[in-house]
């Protein structure tokens, strides 16, 4: 089986005079969880729509599992499950009826058992017969994902899946996506602007801004490339006056804490060794190395 499942080549899309997608090219590997990151309005949703063939590009080529979404859209859509930002559910219908309806559209075999299984998986068994209109936004999101999974898609598109979820709901969802990917090798394209929640989930990241690809890579690669200095927050009894300690720059200080700025990861054990010679160390935390810091850095440099 081909490793590459989605490929976009030089895609352009203009809508009412505004260029939304600008010469965008990237590919998604089968079985990976791809973080598709960018601020609101950067073209994430449009890209998902283009890949699913519900809108057509002005120029460029898209291929999904070997099919062109423009000419063989239904073949593409059969293989894809999409959670749209608004979840797209019928509020006047019950959770079960919503799933049964979409099961018909996606030609799911034994719809009832599949729907019930998914409702149980997403903790919605008690709400089976309740109308979606009274659901909380978290419940709607969960039902929306259940809907997207009805036909066991090869590729799952999640557009801002954790938006509107409480931290617990977001964590549960992320664990479910992880398991789905591990168990069934579902390829996941996860579009979000909430970086913190997805940094441990995604195998690889794509950063877009104003419809252009800014950068792509795995976290360590990107860190290597963009984060040239490290902020280290050390909880310590060390009393250091002055701008440096043992040759390492002190960036900031708070009672009981010192913030060091280091040039590379390898400096961490060396610094700690120096401190421990004269004072205790209670905790060490590396900051400025998360996805968010990376994101701002990439935006700053590549824009």
């Amino acid at each position: 089986m081909e490793k590459e499942i989605i490929r976009l080549e030089k895609i352009n899309k203009t809508f009412t005079g505004t260029k939304i997608i600008n010469n965008l090219s990237f590919s998604v590997q089968r079985g990976e969880i791809l973080g598709f990151l960018g601020p609101n309005g950067s073209g994430k949703t449009t890209t998902i729509r283009l890949i699913n063939g519900v809108i057509y590009p002005d120029s460029g080529q898209i291929s999904v599992a070997g099919f062109d979404p423009v000419t063989a859209g239904n073949e593409v859509r059969k293989r894809c499950g999409v959670l749209t930002e608004s979840a797209g559910l019928y509020e006047n219908m019950t959770a079960l009826d919503n799933l049964l309806f979409f099961a018909e559209l996606y030609e799911v075999k034994s719809p009832l058992s599949r729907a019930k299984e998914l409702l149980a998986d997403f903790g919605l068994s008690d709400a089976t017969k309740k109308k979606v209109g009274i659901f909380s936004s978290g419940m709607k999101k969960r039902l929306g994902i259940a809907k997207a999974l009805l036909h066991n898609p090869e590729i799952l598109f999640l557009d801002e899946p954790t938006n509107g979820l409480d931290p617990e709901g977001a964590r549960d969802l992320i664990n479910y996506i992880k398991e789905l990917n591990r168990k069934y090798q579902v390829t996941v394209l996860l579009a979000t602007h909430l970086l913190k929640q997805v940094q441990d989930l995604c195998h690889r990241f794509i950063f877009i801004h104003q419809g252009r690809l800014l950068e792509t890579g795995i976290l360590t690669e990107l860190e290597e490339k963009y984060l040239r200095s490290i902020s280290l927050k050390v909880e310590t009894g060390l009393e250091a006056s002055g701008e440096e300690f043992a040759g390492y720059r002190i960036e900031n200080r708070a009672p009981g804490y010192l913030h060091f700025q280091l040039e590379k990861k390898d400096d961490i054990p060396l610094l700690l060794k120096e401190i421990l010679l004269v004072a205790p160390v209670y905790s060490v935390e590396m900051s400025g190395r998360d996805l968010e810091a990376l994101y701002f850095k990439i935006r700053e440099e590549r824009r």
């Binding site: 519900v54 239904n74 073949e75 608004s86 559910l89 996606y106």
Partner: peptide, 14 residues
């Protein structure tokens, strides 16, 4: 109005 048309168009229905 209810933003469900999107779901219909995302389905593999001709």
């Amino acid at each position: 109005e209810r933003k469900t048309m999107e779901s219909l168009l995302f389905a593999p229905v001709a």
